[in-house]
Design a protein around this nucleic acid. Structure first.
Lengths: 342, 342
DNA sequence: TTGTACGCGTTATCAT
DNA sequence: ATGATAACGCGTACAA
């Protein structure tokens, strides 16, 4: 049941625990000979230094926590993949937390991470928060934190985001150039910065082309597939948009389903463009025009930034903001007139 | 920088550390009055028992490790989501490891988890392993392990799988009933049990309908999109199958891309069915006929099984095998003749 | 009901 | 180069 510990290993070898311990640390004074002997015996007996004892002693866990709004989502799993690569290379472990966009959970996770379990946190915030000042407490205690993608504007900590404003602007501009005049903008949460930024790009693109703004065309959606389906079908019937811009992937899918239900043809009757990390967007019917974020790279950057904070805190500007570029990939969901053959 | 510890909190309250400690444990003798006082002060001062000290003391980590072949994959992220829910409810934390189908990494992860970092492991194995006897050592040391989906047949430990044989059988049978006579079977690794089982279903379905077996139609694919594209295009040209059965999701997508490249029409010229957890399979062009595994439920079952092993080891049969049912969902990629309108 | 004291397994300091 | 020992922060047996 119990693993062997350093004492037993030391006794077996007729050495002191300190010597054995040294064999596992890189910088210590120890003869190559004894070190080899110790490591061999350790392997033989399957000894590994107990992680909790080491951490207690060293006051750090070599573990980082990643908090995301949802797990079963291409974007977030790709980001996590990026984080994983960087962390693994440094021998760090990753704890995963999913908030399901629940603010209570977010607060609770953060609070509980302050017991030494993690050395730092990478987080994309939940959508519901109103008062996120609890994060400032966290900052005082200096548990390093990096935001990515969905951030709280009023919390000062490094962040990795994409050029959302420019991306939405050019996505909507693309719709306009394809002839759309009544463009709906679907968001999940108008109050979250990411919703606001993407919405602003939409508004400014309309303005630039002198397209009158109809605030009913800004549609606040939910995380429930069912409710979105009702909301969108209603919107499509009542407002008859000829273009739809979705600020998150899920809403593009919801739009497809709603259009199918109503037998509205994409792109002939409605053109659709959406933020999406779906790798098989070309295989959709019709293939989906996307704003594609560099998701894995976001993870890599966020993790690198966090490790910089952990290893050389003095070199990190607490206001650091890394902005990566998304790509607008034009496909058939925004094609002109007749449906082009793929 | 440092958090407050139990000693300081005790001093602040003019109490002993044991009394403070007791306030955080449920079963100990302590007056409600002092307990409340302590908890209030703890909240005030933001005290939390140090996780590593507790774990060192109690010899358990309240943490489970989840090892998967890849993260950016619908199936696995949905399973993790299922695990997460169960673990969270019990106050457990989750460490995530992605092997990228690399056997070395798998062994290394497992080995390193034996230092107390985790109380148990849930794993879907990598595809490359030949000698996985290293897991038996693990079993001797009794770190509880649950397999899901991709398992090693020769390692005795509880597992959660789906009825793969029946599913592939009926998927292939479906192709046959739709008129296919030359059905390709795409697998990633013939040696991995999951590949074998799914292949067996394929073979037996052919046999049942007296369809001659051509072993060139069993195609061993890779994890590289590019190489698969070459392999599949070559196969489509040379062998001219009229049906394709893919044992993993990625190969269904690869088949779509290859057919697009060659302008082979699905389903008119080739019908496609594949294992897939993609929630938007209906939106593909054409919509994809899938064998859909109950991914979240797999996670829930696997986690529940692991917790049973942790909490009541004596009640668990080490040979336990939970088999969940997948669903064959027929869509247009296997439709008859003319392409049906959706 | 509360306090004292020890040990969980390590690593760092100091001595040899 | 190696060994003895204290300390990391907590939980519990035992004493009061």
């Amino acid at each position: 049941m119990r693993n062997i510990n350093i004492k037993e290993l030391a006794k077996t070898l007729n050495l002191s625990t300190s010597t054995v311990s040294r064999a596992f640390r890189d910088n210590s004074d120890i003869s190559k000979e004894t070190k080899d002997k110790i490591l061999a015996a350790a392997k033989e007996l399957n000894y590994q230094p107990n992680h909790y004892a080491s951490n207690l002693r060293e006051q750090r866990s070599k573990t980082i926590a990643v908090i995301v709004p949802e797990l079963a989502n291409n974007f977030f799993s790709q980001v996590i993949h990026g984080i994983e690569g960087v962390a693994r290379a440094r021998g760090y472990h990753i704890l995963i937390y999913s908030t399901d966009d629940d603010y209570e959970k977010e607060v609770s996770f953060i609070r509980h991470l302050h017991n030494g379990r993690a050395d730092g946190i990478i987080m994309s915030v939940s959508g519901e928060a109103n008062d996120h000042n609890y994060l400032n407490e966290l900052n005082q205690k200096r548990l390093p934190l990096v935001f990515f993608d969905r951030v709280y504007e009023d919390i000062i900590t490094p962040r990795v985001i994409t050029n959302d404003y420019e991306s939405s602007f050019s996505a909507v501009q693309h719709l306009i150039k394809q002839g759309c005049k009544r463009i709906a903008c679907l968001v999940i949460n108008k109050n979250l910065s990411i919703g606001k930024t993407r919405m602003q790009g939409y508004l400014d693109a309309l303005a630039k082309y002198d397209i009158p703004f109809d605030d009913r065309l800004i549609v606040d959606c939910t995380n429930s597939y069912k409710r979105n389906n009702v909301i969108l079908k209603d919107m499509l019937k009542r407002l008859k948009p000829d273009g739809v811009f979705t600020s998150v992937e899920r809403l593009a899918f919801a739009t497809y389903y709603a259009c199918n239900d109503l037998e509205v043809a994409i792109p002939e009757q409605v053109k659709v463009v959406g933020f999406s990390s779906l790798q098989i967007a070309p295989l959709l019917n019709p293939s989906l025009t996307t704003v594609t974020q560099p998701s894995t790279e976001i993870g890599v950057e966020a993790a690198s930034l966090l490790f910089k904070m952990l290893e050389h805190p003095e070199t990190v500007n607490i206001n650091e903001k890394i902005v990566l570029g998304s790509k607008l990939v034009k496909r058939n969901s925004t094609a002109l007139g007749e449906l082009k053959k793929r």
